[in-house]
Design a protein around this nucleic acid. Sequence first.
DNA 1: AAATATACATAATTTTCTTATGTATAAGAT
DNA 2: ATCTTATACATAAGAAAATTATGTATATTT
Lengths: 112, 112
Amino acid sequence: MGNSKLYKGSLNTIILKLLDEQGKMYGYEITQKVKALTKGELNITEGALYPALHKLEAEGLLDVEVAKVDNRLRKYYKLTELGEKETVNRLADLEEFIRSMQNLVNPDWNIT
Amino acid sequence: MGNSKLYKGSLNTIILKLLDEQGKMYGYEITQKVKALTKGELNITEGALYPALHKLEAEGLLDVEVAKVDNRLRKYYKLTELGEKETVNRLADLEEFIRSMQNLVNPDWNIT
DNA sequence: AAATATACATAATTTTCTTATGTATAAGAT
DNA sequence: ATCTTATACATAAGAAAATTATGTATATTT
């Protein structure tokens, strides 16, 4: 579980990537999705997620839409046009970073 | 270049891995090696490196040996026995983290 | 002679998390 | 019926780990 502390710096990009894929998501949904996709490896804490969403919104990368489901509040986020452009860049950076890390840590891995 | 900000949390493991490979290295050498291995992608700043080395030494994972080459100071670091054990664990964690990130960011990549 | 490279170090600041705490509703378990 | 867990948001305090700026000193290249 030591891994939960290793994703620093990439949370924003993960959020953008998921929203790009899924169209729109709400916060809690994002935490569950990441948990599922990583088989429990990455657990995004609420204390990290919500401030991150607010910041991305403030930067103009996300739009928010409030909904009420089962008498409970949900805030659906989706990419703005600017957000879509930024997603491409940040994703490219993250992918390059991942490749670099692999090269350092395990040059034997083949990525195809 | 945006990448230089993305390696948070993994610097210690990178240092340990390199020392495991190379036997012993000094600080400046580590920065150059990482730069070379990643083709300029990852640039470890001195403000990050030296405190990291000192901390690893304080934790008992590294031993230091001072040398003078060309009238200039060098501090060679190498893994202690404890350091070697820790390297195995942290490297496994980092590899798992990298795989998780790949799954999130680019599930199409095949790692063989 | 000046600029760049080598080689260390630390302090101030910023970024980005974790942990703790709070509110509120719904669903499942005892 | 009550307690626990899940859903769903939020923020504040603190810690961790970087960046940036600054400092010292020697060697090499221009």
